[in-house]
Simulated scan of single mutants.
Amino acid sequence: MESSELQRVTHWLIDGVWSSEEPAEMIADFCERLVAAGLPLWRFGIFIRTLHPEIFGRNFIWRQGEEVEIGAVEFDVLDSPQFAQSPLRIVFEQGLEVRGRVDDPDSKRFPIINDMRAEGVTDYIAVPLSFLDGSIHATSWMTRQPGGFSGDDIAAIRAIMAPLARVSEIISLRRTAEMLLDTYVGNRAGARILGGQIRRGHTDTMQAVIWLSDLRGFTALSDRLPAETVVAILNHYFDCQVTAIRGHGGEVLKFMGDGLLAVFPIDEYVGDAAHVCAHVLEAARESRASVEALAFPVGVAVERFRFGVALHVGNILYGNIGGGNRLDFTCIGPAVNLAARLEKITGRLGRTVVASEGFANVCHHGWHELGEFPIAGFAKAQRVYGLAEETPVVMA
């Protein structure tokens, strides 16, 4: 591989890679340019560790003539026999290159090289990808060229690593920011923040269904159980709702102790209020079934749980609120206040799901009027509706 050709690929990495909209496109373009420049590359892999509560990292695999494979690896891979015998373990833990020629007896300690022999691979090298923050990521390079990679090929791979690392780090940092924002503020709010909506007072008016819920008897539960157990219970309890909420188009904005605030945006131009409300009700039913099925062992006993959720539809202010340089991306407004008051009524009435008159009028699915109730902060009493299928339960 001539130095001038390598220089062209380097310049493209620095200046032209941004024309690729997705990482997979960039990787495919990168590999194809290297092959065109003379590198006998048959397979390339890049593994980027992530800052994510569930995912250890993401990998991208390119093969000649095929689409780039994209995968996510969970943390349990670190305890697997496959990882223990992988060249990438040495790269991650020691930051060293690992080479495995199929004709080298020492390479038999790496099962992947034996697997690749069946596909005609003659040479393999894993090279660390070092980011400026000191973190070590990994690349792998394979060839089918008789005799394996030449000395010039290896030199070219090493020379391209620095520009590849800088570009990969920039892409990784942006993705990390997106994932952190998705994890802590939700995907819609995260997109707005990354888009520049970061100043206090940046808010939008949005029509949405508001979901407010909390766990019954949480104060007593917290008093009699160790804090670690309470946290574990809360995590399982929130899992029962978050999966259903996200699965039906909602976004969790906030966890407040045992409380959860979520919104389901309504597109006023499409006029899909009835469709959205139907999805919200289905999410509430799924959450109710999941919480009822939740059985948490504590010593010789098994804890069972109940919760309440209030559903309301209305206009909200959605955006940045806070003081100084500490902001929160949340929603406020009379509609949110009403949902919060209705959620308290669920406990008084022994109901799991209650809805405002506004929600029940949009979502006609077997509601039963529970009466009018004075609501603090509201001039008029509010009609409250419960599901006809539910039997009230009086909490002890």
Score class of each variant (00 low, 15 high):
residue 7 Q to H: 13
residue 15 D to T: 13
residue 15 D to F: 11
residue 17 V to R: 10
residue 26 M to V: 07
residue 26 M to N: 04
residue 28 A to H: 08
residue 44 F to W: 03
residue 51 L to E: 13
residue 57 G to P: 07
residue 58 R to Y: 11
residue 70 I to D: 12
residue 72 A to V: 12
residue 86 S to R: 00
residue 90 I to N: 10
residue 105 P to C: 08
residue 105 P to E: 08
residue 107 S to G: 04
residue 108 K to E: 15
residue 114 N to V: 14
residue 125 I to L: 09
residue 132 L to K: 14
residue 140 S to W: 00
residue 143 T to H: 00
residue 150 S to N: 03
residue 164 L to G: 01
residue 169 E to R: 06
residue 173 L to M: 13
residue 187 N to F: 12
residue 198 I to H: 11
residue 201 G to L: 13
residue 202 H to K: 12
residue 203 T to Q: 14
residue 216 R to N: 12
residue 217 G to R: 07
residue 218 F to E: 05
residue 229 T to I: 14
residue 239 D to S: 13
residue 241 Q to S: 11
residue 241 Q to C: 11
residue 254 K to G: 03
residue 258 D to G: 04
residue 263 V to M: 04
residue 268 E to D: 15
residue 271 G to F: 07
residue 272 D to I: 00
residue 275 H to T: 13
residue 279 H to K: 15
residue 280 V to D: 01
residue 284 A to D: 03
residue 291 V to R: 01
residue 292 E to V: 07
residue 301 A to Y: 07
residue 306 R to L: 12
residue 309 V to Q: 02
residue 309 V to G: 01
residue 315 N to Y: 13
residue 326 R to V: 12
residue 326 R to E: 12
residue 336 V to M: 04
residue 341 R to V: 09
residue 343 E to L: 07
residue 348 R to V: 09
residue 354 V to Y: 03
residue 356 S to R: 06
residue 363 C to K: 01
residue 364 H to K: 15
residue 377 G to T: 08
residue 385 Y to F: 15
residue 389 E to P: 11
residue 392 P to R: 05
